[in-house]
Design a protein around this nucleic acid. Structure first.
Lengths: 168, 168
DNA sequence: GCAATATACTAGGACATCCAAGGGTTTGGA
DNA sequence: TCCAAACCCTTGGATGTCCTAGTATATTGC
Protein backbone atom coordinates (compact mmCIF):
# COMPACT_ATOMS: atom_id res chain seq x y z
CA UNK A 1 0.00 0.00 0.00
CA UNK A 2 2.59 2.75 0.44
CA UNK A 3 2.03 6.23 1.80
CA UNK A 4 -1.37 7.51 2.87
CA UNK A 5 -3.11 9.57 0.21
CA UNK A 6 -3.51 13.27 0.93
CA UNK A 7 -7.27 12.96 0.47
CA UNK A 8 -9.86 10.25 1.04
CA UNK A 9 -10.49 8.77 -2.42
CA UNK A 10 -13.96 7.63 -1.43
CA UNK A 11 -14.95 11.08 -0.23
CA UNK A 12 -13.70 12.39 -3.56
CA UNK A 13 -15.76 9.83 -5.45
CA UNK A 14 -18.79 10.93 -3.49
CA UNK A 15 -18.18 14.54 -4.49
CA UNK A 16 -17.85 13.49 -8.10
CA UNK A 17 -21.14 11.66 -7.88
CA UNK A 18 -22.84 14.72 -6.47
CA UNK A 19 -21.33 16.97 -9.12
CA UNK A 20 -22.61 14.73 -11.89
CA UNK A 21 -26.20 14.83 -10.75
CA UNK A 22 -26.28 11.56 -8.87
CA UNK A 23 -26.52 13.12 -5.44
CA UNK A 24 -29.44 10.85 -4.55
CA UNK A 25 -27.24 7.75 -4.58
CA UNK A 26 -23.90 9.32 -3.68
CA UNK A 27 -24.09 8.35 -0.01
CA UNK A 28 -24.89 4.66 -0.53
CA UNK A 29 -22.23 4.55 -3.25
CA UNK A 30 -19.70 5.87 -0.74
CA UNK A 31 -20.85 3.43 1.94
CA UNK A 32 -20.63 0.46 -0.41
CA UNK A 33 -17.24 1.48 -1.72
CA UNK A 34 -16.03 1.86 1.88
CA UNK A 35 -17.21 -1.65 2.66
CA UNK A 36 -15.24 -3.00 -0.30
CA UNK A 37 -12.10 -1.21 0.79
CA UNK A 38 -12.47 -2.14 4.46
CA UNK A 39 -12.84 -5.78 3.50
CA UNK A 40 -9.63 -5.52 1.50
CA UNK A 41 -7.74 -4.05 4.46
CA UNK A 42 -9.06 -6.62 6.91
CA UNK A 43 -8.40 -9.52 4.57
CA UNK A 44 -4.83 -8.30 4.18
CA UNK A 45 -4.31 -8.28 7.96
CA UNK A 46 -5.84 -11.71 8.35
CA UNK A 47 -3.81 -13.27 5.55
CA UNK A 48 -0.64 -11.78 6.99
CA UNK A 49 -1.33 -13.41 10.35
CA UNK A 50 -2.22 -16.76 8.82
CA UNK A 51 0.72 -16.95 6.43
CA UNK A 52 3.18 -18.32 9.04
CA UNK A 53 0.74 -21.19 9.59
CA UNK A 54 0.66 -21.99 5.90
CA UNK A 55 -3.01 -21.05 5.86
CA UNK A 56 -5.15 -18.68 3.86
CA UNK A 57 -8.38 -17.18 5.16
CA UNK A 58 -10.47 -19.55 3.05
CA UNK A 59 -8.68 -22.57 4.45
CA UNK A 60 -8.73 -21.22 7.99
CA UNK A 61 -12.48 -20.65 7.83
CA UNK A 62 -12.98 -24.26 6.85
CA UNK A 63 -10.74 -25.54 9.62
CA UNK A 64 -12.49 -23.36 12.16
CA UNK A 65 -15.89 -24.50 11.00
CA UNK A 66 -14.88 -28.14 11.33
CA UNK A 67 -13.39 -27.56 14.76
CA UNK A 68 -16.78 -26.40 16.01
CA UNK A 69 -18.64 -29.38 14.59
CA UNK A 70 -19.43 -31.96 17.28
CA UNK A 71 -17.79 -34.80 15.38
CA UNK A 72 -15.10 -32.67 13.75
CA UNK A 73 -16.58 -33.62 10.37
CA UNK A 74 -19.03 -32.03 7.93
CA UNK A 75 -20.38 -32.85 4.48
CA UNK A 76 -18.87 -30.72 1.71
CA UNK A 77 -22.24 -29.26 0.78
CA UNK A 78 -22.92 -28.30 4.37
CA UNK A 79 -19.60 -26.50 4.56
CA UNK A 80 -20.36 -24.74 1.30
CA UNK A 81 -23.71 -23.53 2.66
CA UNK A 82 -22.37 -22.40 6.02
CA UNK A 83 -19.36 -20.61 4.58
CA UNK A 84 -21.55 -19.18 1.83
CA UNK A 85 -19.17 -19.96 -0.95
CA UNK A 86 -19.50 -21.91 -4.18
CA UNK A 87 -19.07 -25.69 -3.88
CA UNK A 88 -16.04 -25.56 -6.14
CA UNK A 89 -14.34 -23.23 -3.70
CA UNK A 90 -14.76 -25.83 -0.98
CA UNK A 91 -13.36 -28.51 -3.28
CA UNK A 92 -10.37 -26.30 -3.89
CA UNK A 93 -9.78 -25.60 -0.19
CA UNK A 94 -10.21 -29.23 0.81
CA UNK A 95 -7.74 -30.33 -1.86
CA UNK A 96 -5.08 -28.13 -0.34
CA UNK A 97 -5.92 -28.89 3.27
CA UNK A 98 -5.88 -32.58 2.51
CA UNK A 99 -2.49 -32.20 0.89
CA UNK A 100 -1.27 -30.56 4.08
CA UNK A 101 -2.81 -33.44 6.05
CA UNK A 102 -5.01 -31.10 8.04
CA UNK A 103 -8.23 -32.78 6.90
CA UNK A 104 -9.22 -36.02 5.21
CA UNK A 105 -12.10 -36.86 2.90
CA UNK A 106 -14.24 -39.82 3.88
CA UNK A 107 -17.38 -41.27 2.31
CA UNK A 108 -20.73 -40.49 3.86
CA UNK A 109 -22.04 -43.58 5.67
CA UNK A 110 -25.48 -43.58 4.06
CA UNK A 111 -25.43 -41.20 1.08
CA UNK A 112 -23.06 -42.20 -1.68
CA UNK A 113 -23.17 -38.74 -3.24
CA UNK A 114 -21.84 -37.02 -0.21
CA UNK A 115 -18.24 -36.61 0.95
CA UNK A 116 -17.39 -35.83 4.54
CA UNK A 117 -14.51 -33.54 5.46
CA UNK A 118 -12.87 -34.63 8.66
CA UNK A 119 -10.37 -32.75 10.78
CA UNK A 120 -7.11 -34.55 11.59
CA UNK A 121 -5.48 -34.12 15.00
CA UNK A 122 -2.91 -31.93 13.31
CA UNK A 123 -5.63 -29.85 11.68
CA UNK A 124 -7.40 -29.33 14.96
CA UNK A 125 -4.21 -28.23 16.67
CA UNK A 126 -3.33 -25.82 13.90
CA UNK A 127 -6.81 -24.31 13.91
CA UNK A 128 -6.49 -23.68 17.62
CA UNK A 129 -3.14 -21.97 17.28
CA UNK A 130 -4.22 -19.85 14.34
CA UNK A 131 -7.38 -18.78 16.14
CA UNK A 132 -5.38 -17.65 19.15
CA UNK A 133 -3.17 -15.41 17.04
CA UNK A 134 -6.06 -14.13 14.98
CA UNK A 135 -7.90 -13.24 18.19
CA UNK A 136 -5.01 -11.32 19.64
CA UNK A 137 -3.62 -9.72 16.49
CA UNK A 138 -6.71 -8.97 14.42
CA UNK A 139 -10.00 -9.24 16.28
CA UNK A 140 -8.49 -7.87 19.48
CA UNK A 141 -7.09 -4.84 17.67
CA UNK A 142 -9.78 -4.26 15.09
CA UNK A 143 -9.62 -0.50 15.42
CA UNK A 144 -13.39 -0.27 15.80
CA UNK A 145 -14.84 1.37 18.89
CA UNK A 146 -17.02 -0.98 20.95
CA UNK A 147 -20.24 0.81 20.14
CA UNK A 148 -19.30 0.88 16.46
CA UNK A 149 -18.81 -2.87 16.52
CA UNK A 150 -22.38 -3.16 17.78
CA UNK A 151 -23.59 -0.83 15.06
CA UNK A 152 -21.83 -2.84 12.38
CA UNK A 153 -23.28 -6.10 13.64
CA UNK A 154 -26.75 -4.60 13.67
CA UNK A 155 -26.57 -2.84 10.28
CA UNK A 156 -24.87 -5.66 8.42
CA UNK A 157 -27.02 -8.27 10.12
CA UNK A 158 -30.13 -6.57 8.80
CA UNK A 159 -28.58 -6.28 5.40
CA UNK A 160 -27.62 -9.94 5.26
CA UNK A 161 -31.04 -11.07 6.37
CA UNK A 162 -32.69 -8.91 3.71
CA UNK A 163 -30.26 -10.27 1.15
CA UNK A 164 -31.53 -13.75 1.92
CA UNK A 165 -28.58 -15.14 3.83
CA UNK A 166 -30.71 -16.50 6.65
CA UNK A 167 -34.30 -16.45 7.86
CA UNK A 168 -33.63 -16.44 11.59
CA UNK B 1 -26.06 -19.38 -2.56
CA UNK B 2 -29.38 -21.23 -2.62
CA UNK B 3 -31.98 -21.15 0.15
CA UNK B 4 -31.62 -18.96 3.23
CA UNK B 5 -30.08 -20.77 6.17
CA UNK B 6 -32.34 -21.37 9.16
CA UNK B 7 -29.86 -19.56 11.41
CA UNK B 8 -27.39 -16.73 10.99
CA UNK B 9 -24.00 -18.46 10.62
CA UNK B 10 -22.16 -15.42 11.92
CA UNK B 11 -24.30 -15.24 15.06
CA UNK B 12 -23.52 -18.93 15.54
CA UNK B 13 -19.82 -18.29 15.12
CA UNK B 14 -20.05 -15.57 17.74
CA UNK B 15 -21.70 -18.00 20.17
CA UNK B 16 -18.96 -20.52 19.50
CA UNK B 17 -16.35 -17.89 20.24
CA UNK B 18 -18.03 -17.05 23.51
CA UNK B 19 -18.35 -20.68 24.49
CA UNK B 20 -14.65 -21.26 23.92
CA UNK B 21 -13.53 -18.49 26.20
CA UNK B 22 -12.91 -15.83 23.60
CA UNK B 23 -15.85 -13.68 24.60
CA UNK B 24 -13.63 -10.60 24.72
CA UNK B 25 -13.10 -10.66 20.94
CA UNK B 26 -16.32 -12.37 19.87
CA UNK B 27 -18.07 -9.14 18.90
CA UNK B 28 -15.30 -7.72 16.70
CA UNK B 29 -14.90 -11.18 15.14
CA UNK B 30 -18.59 -11.13 14.24
CA UNK B 31 -18.39 -7.58 12.89
CA UNK B 32 -15.37 -8.38 10.73
CA UNK B 33 -16.89 -11.58 9.43
CA UNK B 34 -20.07 -9.66 8.60
CA UNK B 35 -18.04 -7.13 6.62
CA UNK B 36 -16.46 -9.94 4.61
CA UNK B 37 -19.82 -11.49 3.83
CA UNK B 38 -21.47 -8.16 3.01
CA UNK B 39 -18.70 -7.34 0.60
CA UNK B 40 -19.24 -10.68 -1.11
CA UNK B 41 -22.98 -10.02 -1.51
CA UNK B 42 -22.47 -6.51 -2.82
CA UNK B 43 -19.74 -7.56 -5.22
CA UNK B 44 -22.06 -10.23 -6.58
CA UNK B 45 -24.79 -7.67 -7.25
CA UNK B 46 -22.37 -5.28 -8.89
CA UNK B 47 -20.81 -7.92 -11.12
CA UNK B 48 -24.26 -9.11 -12.20
CA UNK B 49 -25.19 -5.59 -13.29
CA UNK B 50 -21.91 -5.02 -15.11
CA UNK B 51 -21.81 -8.35 -16.91
CA UNK B 52 -24.08 -7.22 -19.81
CA UNK B 53 -21.58 -4.42 -20.45
CA UNK B 54 -18.71 -6.87 -20.64
CA UNK B 55 -17.25 -5.24 -17.55
CA UNK B 56 -16.09 -6.47 -14.17
CA UNK B 57 -15.99 -4.29 -11.07
CA UNK B 58 -12.24 -3.89 -11.31
CA UNK B 59 -12.45 -2.67 -14.89
CA UNK B 60 -15.46 -0.48 -14.16
CA UNK B 61 -13.66 1.22 -11.30
CA UNK B 62 -10.79 2.09 -13.58
CA UNK B 63 -13.10 3.44 -16.29
CA UNK B 64 -15.01 5.49 -13.73
CA UNK B 65 -11.81 6.88 -12.28
CA UNK B 66 -10.59 7.93 -15.71
CA UNK B 67 -13.93 9.51 -16.57
CA UNK B 68 -13.55 11.87 -13.61
CA UNK B 69 -10.03 12.88 -14.53
CA UNK B 70 -9.91 16.29 -16.18
CA UNK B 71 -8.10 15.01 -19.26
CA UNK B 72 -9.60 11.54 -19.22
CA UNK B 73 -6.11 10.16 -18.68
CA UNK B 74 -4.07 9.06 -15.66
CA UNK B 75 -0.66 7.50 -15.08
CA UNK B 76 -0.82 3.81 -14.18
CA UNK B 77 0.80 4.43 -10.80
CA UNK B 78 -1.72 7.13 -9.97
CA UNK B 79 -4.58 4.79 -10.79
CA UNK B 80 -2.98 2.12 -8.64
CA UNK B 81 -2.73 4.50 -5.70
CA UNK B 82 -6.24 5.88 -6.02
CA UNK B 83 -7.88 2.50 -6.47
CA UNK B 84 -5.69 1.09 -3.70
CA UNK B 85 -4.74 -2.01 -5.58
CA UNK B 86 -1.42 -3.54 -6.54
CA UNK B 87 0.22 -2.15 -9.69
CA UNK B 88 0.01 -5.54 -11.36
CA UNK B 89 -3.75 -5.51 -10.91
CA UNK B 90 -3.89 -2.27 -12.86
CA UNK B 91 -1.71 -3.76 -15.58
CA UNK B 92 -4.11 -6.68 -15.78
CA UNK B 93 -7.21 -4.47 -15.99
CA UNK B 94 -5.66 -2.13 -18.55
CA UNK B 95 -4.65 -5.10 -20.72
CA UNK B 96 -8.25 -6.20 -20.95
CA UNK B 97 -9.73 -2.74 -21.31
CA UNK B 98 -7.26 -1.97 -24.05
CA UNK B 99 -8.24 -5.18 -25.83
CA UNK B 100 -11.85 -4.04 -25.66
CA UNK B 101 -10.74 -0.66 -27.04
CA UNK B 102 -12.11 1.17 -24.03
CA UNK B 103 -8.75 2.69 -23.10
CA UNK B 104 -5.38 3.16 -24.76
CA UNK B 105 -1.90 3.28 -23.31
CA UNK B 106 0.22 6.26 -24.24
CA UNK B 107 3.69 7.34 -23.18
CA UNK B 108 4.05 10.05 -20.57
CA UNK B 109 5.27 13.25 -22.25
CA UNK B 110 8.15 13.88 -19.86
CA UNK B 111 8.74 10.72 -17.82
CA UNK B 112 9.80 7.73 -19.86
CA UNK B 113 9.02 5.32 -17.04
CA UNK B 114 5.41 6.28 -16.87
CA UNK B 115 2.51 5.06 -18.99
CA UNK B 116 -0.71 7.02 -19.28
CA UNK B 117 -4.06 5.30 -19.48
CA UNK B 118 -6.44 7.23 -21.68
CA UNK B 119 -10.16 6.77 -22.08
CA UNK B 120 -11.45 6.27 -25.63
CA UNK B 121 -14.76 7.80 -26.70
CA UNK B 122 -16.21 4.32 -26.53
CA UNK B 123 -14.84 3.81 -23.06
CA UNK B 124 -16.29 7.05 -21.83
CA UNK B 125 -19.70 6.20 -23.23
CA UNK B 126 -19.69 2.74 -21.71
CA UNK B 127 -18.64 4.07 -18.31
CA UNK B 128 -21.56 6.48 -18.41
CA UNK B 129 -24.07 3.77 -19.25
CA UNK B 130 -22.71 1.36 -16.68
CA UNK B 131 -22.78 4.02 -13.99
CA UNK B 132 -26.42 4.81 -14.72
CA UNK B 133 -27.46 1.19 -14.26
CA UNK B 134 -25.25 0.73 -11.21
CA UNK B 135 -26.83 3.82 -9.65
CA UNK B 136 -30.36 2.63 -10.21
CA UNK B 137 -29.92 -1.09 -9.60
CA UNK B 138 -27.34 -1.25 -6.83
CA UNK B 139 -26.64 2.04 -5.09
CA UNK B 140 -30.28 3.13 -5.33
CA UNK B 141 -31.50 -0.11 -3.77
CA UNK B 142 -28.69 -0.83 -1.35
CA UNK B 143 -31.02 -2.05 1.35
CA UNK B 144 -29.38 0.19 3.94
CA UNK B 145 -31.49 2.71 5.83
CA UNK B 146 -30.40 6.31 5.26
CA UNK B 147 -29.14 6.77 8.79
CA UNK B 148 -27.28 3.46 8.58
CA UNK B 149 -25.54 4.65 5.43
CA UNK B 150 -24.31 7.63 7.41
CA UNK B 151 -23.15 5.38 10.23
CA UNK B 152 -21.26 3.13 7.82
CA UNK B 153 -19.54 6.08 6.17
CA UNK B 154 -18.52 7.42 9.56
CA UNK B 155 -17.38 4.13 11.08
CA UNK B 156 -15.54 2.85 8.03
CA UNK B 157 -14.08 6.26 7.29
CA UNK B 158 -12.49 6.33 10.72
CA UNK B 159 -11.26 2.81 10.27
CA UNK B 160 -9.69 3.54 6.90
CA UNK B 161 -7.98 6.66 8.16
CA UNK B 162 -6.56 4.74 11.11
CA UNK B 163 -5.46 2.00 8.74
CA UNK B 164 -3.38 4.57 6.86
CA UNK B 165 -5.45 4.93 3.71
CA UNK B 166 -5.41 8.71 3.81
CA UNK B 167 -4.29 11.55 6.05
CA UNK B 168 -7.08 13.99 5.28
C1' DG C 1 29.62 13.07 -15.42
C1' DC C 2 28.71 8.64 -13.59
C1' DA C 3 27.55 5.21 -10.52
C1' DA C 4 24.12 3.99 -6.96
C1' DT C 5 19.48 4.32 -5.69
C1' DA C 6 14.66 4.97 -6.52
C1' DT C 7 10.62 4.56 -9.40
C1' DA C 8 7.43 2.54 -13.10
C1' DC C 9 5.65 -1.16 -15.47
C1' DT C 10 5.37 -6.03 -16.79
C1' DA C 11 6.06 -11.21 -16.72
C1' DG C 12 5.25 -15.41 -14.23
C1' DG C 13 3.33 -17.93 -10.42
C1' DA C 14 0.25 -18.97 -6.38
C1' DC C 15 -4.55 -18.61 -4.68
C1' DA C 16 -9.34 -17.78 -4.49
C1' DT C 17 -13.94 -17.21 -6.64
C1' DC C 18 -17.40 -18.13 -9.86
C1' DC C 19 -19.64 -20.49 -13.90
C1' DA C 20 -20.57 -24.33 -17.06
C1' DA C 21 -20.35 -29.19 -17.74
C1' DG C 22 -19.96 -33.94 -16.71
C1' DG C 23 -20.36 -38.35 -14.11
C1' DG C 24 -22.14 -40.87 -10.14
C1' DT C 25 -26.03 -41.55 -6.60
C1' DT C 26 -30.76 -40.95 -4.75
C1' DT C 27 -35.35 -39.95 -4.87
C1' DG C 28 -39.96 -39.92 -6.49
C1' DG C 29 -43.73 -40.33 -9.48
C1' DA C 30 -45.82 -43.02 -13.40
C1' DT D 1 -40.32 -51.40 -10.84
C1' DC D 2 -37.91 -47.99 -13.39
C1' DC D 3 -36.62 -43.87 -15.55
C1' DA D 4 -36.45 -38.90 -15.14
C1' DA D 5 -35.37 -35.21 -12.11
C1' DA D 6 -32.71 -33.68 -8.28
C1' DC D 7 -28.54 -33.59 -5.81
C1' DC D 8 -23.34 -33.89 -4.87
C1' DC D 9 -18.74 -33.34 -6.13
C1' DT D 10 -15.02 -32.49 -9.46
C1' DT D 11 -12.76 -30.75 -13.65
C1' DG D 12 -11.60 -27.02 -16.65
C1' DG D 13 -11.69 -22.20 -17.78
C1' DA D 14 -11.98 -17.12 -16.92
C1' DT D 15 -10.93 -13.26 -13.64
C1' DG D 16 -8.87 -10.78 -10.02
C1' DT D 17 -5.39 -10.11 -6.29
C1' DC D 18 -0.93 -10.29 -4.50
C1' DC D 19 4.17 -11.33 -4.50
C1' DT D 20 8.73 -11.73 -6.52
C1' DA D 21 11.78 -10.60 -10.15
C1' DG D 22 13.41 -8.33 -14.03
C1' DT D 23 13.86 -4.39 -17.40
C1' DA D 24 13.86 0.40 -18.38
C1' DT D 25 14.08 5.23 -17.07
C1' DA D 26 14.97 9.11 -13.54
C1' DT D 27 17.18 11.11 -9.74
C1' DT D 28 20.77 11.75 -6.48
C1' DG D 29 25.05 12.17 -4.62
C1' DC D 30 29.91 12.18 -5.00
Amino acid sequence: MGTPLPRDPIADARLNWERHGWADVAAPMAAITAIMRTQQILLGRIEAVLKPFGLTFARYELLALLSFARSGALPMNKASALLQVHPTSVTNAVDRLENAELVVRSPHPTDGRTTLIELTAEGRALAKQATAVLNSEVFGRSGFADQDVDQLIRILGTFRRNAGDFSD
